[in-house]
Design a binder for these strands. Structure first.
Lengths: 146, 146
DNA sequence: TATTAATATATGCATTTGCATGTAATTGTC
DNA sequence: GACAATTACATGCAAATGCATATATTAATA
């Protein structure tokens, strides 16, 4: 321990816990109320869409989403079980897979967005000015890998 | 849906998810590596300590920690099982309880702090200047209840 | 003051997470 | 090019979480 933490730091830390907990669970709750699957499903589908035709290796999804390997593996199980994604063998690497969205998955992504956008608006965006959002994004960017 | 979300807002939102996930799990992991219970245990003990001699109703802890009622109930089960807290009948309200720390609980709070402080330093504080921490605290404060 | 509604907390059961480890393929080394 | 080490992903089992509902008590109403 090099030095005692200053009060503003402790306060920022406490608020990070509270704010993320509060906003994330409110958004999750709105999604569920609209009859949709959890946020993580949306995130997976979005990453896959961004990745395009070739899909993504689970490994890449993992580091993008900061999800534990076994959690992603089971999340993909569930999403594949519901027909939203497909696992394909990876041509370059026999151990790996390529994950791609199905048409149903791409459709789900579209269907979820209105509820998701409204939830972000209600629980997050509404509480910040444009400038505040920019500053917050900048500060939070310092806290996660790359 | 009143309006499309601006890009900075979406970016801030995405970074809130990533940053909180990244930092919280890193801190949890350091605590566990040091042989300590999860963060939530520390939070409970700290709130109880702040509340002083009279302890707290679970209801109060719940809203302070933004924890679901059943989750808090079971968290208290575990902590009581390990002897860190005690549930006492509530004099004013026969339905309720008063939760207080035991000596072992107060001791745990002290023992956990060095590892916790170091983890906050390493994964959070180190990445922000004092001024940035202040600004971050201010912005995050807008996002959670009161 | 019965009776109904609301509140505080607990709990059975299904789902999810975490941990440890398994399996199969690939890479590195000699 | 054989063999050990590493990597990618899966999985059995225990713990935690979420959901629905139960139980006991207090507050509200008629």
């Amino acid at each position: 321990m090099r030095q005692r933490l200053p009060d503003q730091t402790i306060s920022a830390w406490a608020r990070l816990q509270r704010a993320s907990q509060s906003v994330l669970s409110a958004v999750e709750s709105d999604l569920k109320a609209a009859g949709h699957p959890p946020l993580a499903w949306y995130d997976v589908l979005l990453e896959l869409k961004r990745a395009g035709k070739d899909g993504l290796r689970p490994l890449a999804l993992q580091s993008q989403m900061l999800l534990a390997q076994y959690n992603l593996s089971r999340l993909l199980d569930r999403m594949a079980g519901d027909g939203y994604i497909e696992r394909r063998p990876c041509p370059n690497d026999g151990r790996g897979q390529i994950v791609v969205t199905t048409p149903a998955g791409r459709h789900l992504l579209k269907r979820m967005w209105p509820a998701y956008e409204a939830a972000i608006q209600r629980h997050f965006a509404e509480r910040l000015s444009a400038e505040e959002a920019t500053r917050l994004a900048h500060l939070l960017g310092k806290l996660s890998p790359r």
